[in-house]
Design a protein around this nucleic acid. Sequence first.
DNA 1: AGCCAGGCAGAGA
DNA 2: TCTCTGCATGGC
Length: 289
Amino acid sequence: MGPIPRTFRLRAPAYDLDATLSSGQAFRWRVAGSVWTGVIRDRWVQLRSVGNEIEARTVAGAEDRSVLAAYLQTGVDQNVILATFPRDPVLAEAVSTAPGLRILRQDPWECLASFLLSSTKQIVQIRQIIEILCQRLGPPLLTPAGFPAAHGFPSAARVAEASERLLRACRTGFRAPYLLATARAVATGQFSLAELGLLPLPAARLRIQELPGVGPKIADCVLLFAYGRTEAFPIDVWIERVLRQGYFAGREVPRRALLDFAAAHFGVHAGHAQQFLFHWARLRAGRRA
DNA sequence: AGCCAGGCAGAGA
DNA sequence: TCTCTGCATGGC
């Protein structure tokens, strides 16, 4: 056992940390140079890519290694995912832009709450809102000497006992009552995030959409980014544009039809394809959003 | 300045 | 089932 190291490394071949942490699936990471600073399970973490490894710096225990590996999904063989993709020039172009882009495995509550706050917001704004929320409601965390204070993501119970006024003061706008009602449903146990993971995808989609403020898009984001349902395929305005232009000659297609197409065309890991397409579209647009 | 943003709920046809 | 609208806020 011995003393707990402050830094350790994970083997992570073909892992594009920059693309993964900047691709709009998690909102609490900040980069300075090549060093990413964030929070995983109420632990302050810094990450940087070093060759085929990811170096982590933390203040806490050795179990962080498995927690970090689970979060980053470093055990997933990217080639296995890519091998399931169809031969398709549009997807190929997107993949070639960042072949090491991964899907994280996030905490379900944090992911759900974050995407509840995402509707009709640019990613920069989502990050700002969530940062304010964490500063005001989240638990203070230990950070190494010389580093600024950090806060964890507030629990469902903590959000549930907040007022709508307080949540609106975090710039959440019309999303505040949705966040509050959903937090209460989760905190009281009326809605079980654990049971959600046991359901097949169609049932899980319907179940999570029972929560106020959660529709098809947010449902699939949570199932993809927090439950590892890699066949989930969130369709937002970016993905809708990419699919229309790339696969339907620019025609308008209902989202329901786009979802059917995605499942049939992209296959069992359609969610990964979605993330490649999303990241590529945003890069191509000059990272405006 | 005005358009748009990792949408959703409710109303009305 | 489908279409339309209101919703807060701020970046570009």
